[in-house]
């Protein structure tokens, strides 16, 4: 175990744990947009920036989601400097996606009413802040890597290959659930699941429950589940409610 202080409070954390997690274990609030316990840390939004002083007396700002705990580390999560830094960051994000309600709420929390920077056209980024939560979820949790970043620099955006190759996608919707700014929309309608991504749309067929007849899962996801679990396809022919009933 590693001993460190966060906002003056002594604490212990496992070696290799990140400062963000150690702070959260103490119920200390650090704002984040791109952090999620299900995927690896990435450091895209940088809102979790904190002030650290190492044992040797070096002082600097780091992203707490990517900084491992150290013996004798002194962390400050809410200094004037940090607050100003976070305000600037959220203002920049807000300039990128000026209409995102989630970013507006975060900005308010961090003490910024509006952004002083020139706002980009909302149709350009479609509320996507390139936090990579969706691509990490698709890669690390689902294991399909159906979406990724394409292009570079200011042209970087999240999309499927060639903007129309959705072969790897199983339509599970993990990206939709994890997106911190709701940049991905998912709707089930008329037996189809439709995704509206920032730069492309996809449509997949849903399967009907053999018993109650409701559309319960995308066909591709069923095939994926059968492959991963080793259960026969017929096992997933009925929806989860109908299956549970039988077991009772």
């Amino acid at each position: 175990m590693v001993k460190l202080t966060i906002d003056g409070r002594q604490t212990e954390a496992k070696e290799g744990a990140m400062v963000l997690d150690a702070a959260r274990a103490l119920n200390i609030y650090i704002p984040t947009l791109c952090a999620h316990e299900s995927v690896s840390a990435y450091g895209a939004c940088r809102l979790c920036t904190v002030d650290i002083t190492t044992r040797s007396g070096r002082n600097r700002m780091v992203t707490s989601c990517l900084y491992p705990v150290e013996e004798g580390l002194a962390v400050k999560t809410t200094t004037e400097k940090i607050a100003a830094h976070r305000r600037m960051l959220i203002q920049l994000l807000l300039a990128r996606c000026p209409e995102s309600p989630e970013l507006k709420a975060m900005a308010k929390k961090l003490g910024a009413d509006d952004t002083p920077f020139p706002k980009e056209d909302p149709a350009k980024n479609h509320n996507c802040i390139l936090c990579a939560l969706c691509t990490r979820a698709c890669d690390e949790v689902v294991g399909q890597s159906a979406i990724s970043f394409v292009n570079r620099g200011v042209a970087r955006e999240m999309a499927i290959p060639f903007y129309n190759d959705s072969d790897a996608c199983i339509a599970c919707g993990s990206c939709f659930y994890i997106c911190p700014t709701n940049a991905i929309q998912m709707t089930d309608k008329n037996g189809k699941r439709r995704f509206v991504m920032p730069h492309n749309t996809m449509e997949f067929e849903l399967a009907q429950c053999a018993q109650c007849g409701r559309y319960h899962l995308p066909k591709r996801q069923i095939a994926w589940m059968a492959k991963k679990s080793g259960q026969p396809l017929e096992f997933f022919a009925r929806c989860i409610s109908c299956r549970e009933e039988v077991r009772l």
Partner: peptide, 27 residues
């Protein structure tokens, strides 16, 4: 060509997104 990227993705057994991401990254 698109088909070449698909072929590399299949032969190397890496996601197409990775091949496409790298191919679009470099000018």
């Amino acid at each position: 060509p698109r088909k070449a990227l698909a072929e590399i993705h299949k032969e190397l057994n890496i996601p197409l997104t990775q091949v496409y991401g790298v191919a679009t990254f470099f000018k």
